[in-house]
Simulated scan of single mutants.
Amino acid sequence: MNQPEEQALLLQATAGDVQAFSALLEKYYTMIYRMAFRWLGNQDDSEDVAQEVCIKLGRSIHGFQANSKFSTWVYKIVLNTVRDFQRKQRNHANIDEISVATNGNTSEQQMHNTQLWQLVQQLPDKQRDAVLLVYAEGLSHSEAANVLDCKESTVSWYIHEAKKQLKALMHHD
């Protein structure tokens, strides 16, 4: 789906067209689930969060303002839903193993990546969110700043601090 097609669907969906909204969900569901899984590391929890995000999108699509990218708005909703879920589960859940697609990597590289993502999960929330948005989701610092509602320089600082902490955590083990 190209940008003009997406814009047309957005206009229709914000006006209440259910089929247009369904087409948007179909386009973004994989991204929503993938992002939830990267934050939560658990299939069932990620599915629950993805479904909750779809409900939230449905309830609020009519209020979407075209002054920002739709994908940025979706990222924000996913991130807030994940944070809400984590707050509810904080006392009950352990961090499960994070698995990251490692196209063609050896099992040793996969193990290192899994260990690295487990360490990322130990970072303070804002640092973890910045790292996952930039490195796991492939957003620019500017796009991540839009999702996190902060300045681009703040995202750069979060990532700088995260790298320092990750180095310390890696040498601590």
Rank of each mutant, 00 (worst) to 15 (best):
G104T: 12
S99W: 07
V134C: 04
K76S: 14
V78E: 06
L79M: 12
Q127N: 03
M111E: 13
S142A: 13
T102H: 12
T106V: 06
N113D: 09
L133V: 10
N105A: 13
W117V: 00
N105C: 11
N80H: 14
S99N: 11
Q118E: 04
T114I: 10
A93V: 09
Q109I: 02
N105L: 09
K88L: 06
Q89I: 01
Q122T: 07
Q89H: 04
H112W: 07
A136D: 04
W117Q: 01
R87N: 15
N103A: 06
A144G: 12
E143T: 08
E143N: 15
Q115E: 10
G138C: 03
R128K: 14
E137A: 15
Q89M: 11
M111F: 03
H141K: 09
N80S: 14
E97W: 03
D84G: 14
A144Y: 11
Q86Y: 06
S99F: 10
E108I: 14
Q86T: 13
R87Q: 15
L133G: 04
V131T: 11
S107A: 11
H112E: 12
K76T: 14
S142H: 12
V78G: 06
E108V: 14
V134H: 08
Q109V: 08
E97N: 05
H112G: 05
Q89Y: 05
A144I: 11
S99I: 08
Q127T: 01
A93Q: 14
T81G: 13
E108S: 08
L133N: 00
R128F: 01
V134W: 01
K88V: 06
R90E: 15
L119C: 05
D84A: 13
E143V: 02
G138D: 02
A144H: 10
G104Q: 08
A101M: 09
D96S: 07
S107K: 11
S99H: 11
H141N: 15
Q89C: 02
Q86M: 15
M111K: 10
V82P: 05
T81I: 08
N146W: 10
E108M: 05
D84Y: 08
I98M: 09
N94S: 15
T114H: 07
S142M: 12
V134N: 02
A101L: 11
Q86C: 15
I77Q: 06
Q109S: 09
L132R: 10
Q121D: 00
R90P: 00
D125W: 09
L116M: 12
W117F: 14
V78S: 13
E108G: 00
A145S: 15
N80C: 08
